[in-house]
């Protein structure tokens, strides 16, 4: 187990290093220069600005400085928000994104698990077809389409909830959370249905029936736990989907979160912020996948002793 974790950690650092390097050099080839937004400046003013952001030095030197700062956890200074460090920007915008993501995750997986169980226990009935169709919708309809529709009907037409922004407390978070939750909901519903059906056909469920267990005990005491364990493995893709979703959902609902900032930094050619956010997202996903793998080993008694997943 320790050896396995060690190996995984080395890979994680290697991956992060590659992403950082690739991001840095890709940024240099970007067609638009960040200085473009300073068009009105004259030669000497530009030189001052370039010096200030350290982009007057040769590329390898810039790279060395960047990596050195990165090692210290410093993501550099934003080109657009004057004088603000990327770290500060991320910290300020972390909270809304985190709240939305967490709410979507909890709501999506809980409802998804229930729907999946319902489908599996009432296989080939109206409930099964209904929840399966719902899951297909959730997987198929792009988050930005769903978010737009929610915003149009529930906020603009019926005025039930705020159209957007982050200034109405919890109410502001409901619609964007629901929009984000569709992905995890659909994924876990489908996953749990397949797993449950397989578990329900297994010998130990027949044995549980032979012991006299009733439908409730079979579903919750015997089947659910065994179906839930593999669900952990979809958390990685779910997290990736949440980030993708957050870019558009935060945009649509004008939420001051990291996703919204990432999109606007792309629009304004804010190199430092693009790089910083890219690294942040990558690190987040890599850590989630790592935790998922470790967690899987911990909660499945079959792997717990034999040590590590191969």
């Amino acid at each position: 187990m320790v050896k396995y974790i060690g190996k995984r950690l080395i890979y994680m650092f290697l991956t992060m290093f590659l992403i950082a390097t690739a991001t840095f050099f890709l940024m240099q080839t970007l067609p638009g220069s960040p200085i473009a937004s300073y068009n009105k400046l004259n030669e000497s003013q530009r030189a001052i600005v370039e010096k200030k952001y350290g982009i007057d030095k040769p590329k390898p030197v810039q790279y060395a400085i960047y990596m050195k700062n990165l090692a210290k956890g410093d993501l550099g200074t934003s080109f657009v928000f004057k004088g603000k460090s990327v770290n500060d920007l991320l910290v300020n915008r972390f909270k809304p994104s985190f709240i939305l993501g967490a709410q979507a995750m909890v709501f999506g997986t809980v409802v998804g698990i229930l729907l999946g169980m319902l489908a599996a226990l009432r296989q080939n009935t109206f409930w099964d077809y209904g929840s399966t169709f719902f899951a297909i919708l959730g997987i198929s309809i792009p988050s930005f389409v769903f978010a737009s529709l929610l915003q149009y009907w529930i906020a603009s037409e019926w005025h039930l909830l705020p159209v957007g922004l982050w200034n109405d407390g919890w109410k502001s978070s409901i619609l964007p959370s629901i929009a984000l939750a569709m992905g995890p909901l659909a994924l876990s519903a489908r996953f749990i249905r397949t797993e449950m059906i397989e578990v329900l056909n297994s010998d130990y469920i027949t044995l549980a029936k032979a012991k006299g267990a009733n439908g409730y005990e079979i579903a919750f005491k015997h089947a659910l736990r065994n179906a839930l364990i593999p669900l952990v493995t979809v958390l990685g893709p779910v997290a990736a989907g949440l980030i993708t979703g957050s870019l558009v959902v935060e945009q649509i609902f004008a939420i001051p979160g990291i996703g919204e900032q990432f999109v606007s930094s792309i629009m304004t050619n804010d190199h430092a912020t693009i790089m910083g956010t890219t690294l942040f997202f990558s690190a987040f996903l890599i850590v989630v996948i790592f935790i998922v793998d470790i967690l899987y080993g911990i909660i499945d008694p079959r792997i717990r002793l034999s040590g590590g997943k191969s």
Binding site: Y11, T15, T29, P31, A240, T244, I266, L285
Partner: peptide, 21 residues
């Protein structure tokens, strides 16, 4: 592949699209 799989698709797609016409 093990290294590439660690890189989130979304990030790669966005970076690639940024540097190309």
């Amino acid at each position: 592949v093990e290294i590439l799989i660690g890189i989130p698709t979304l990030i790669v797609v966005i970076l690639m699209i940024l540097i190309m016409e």
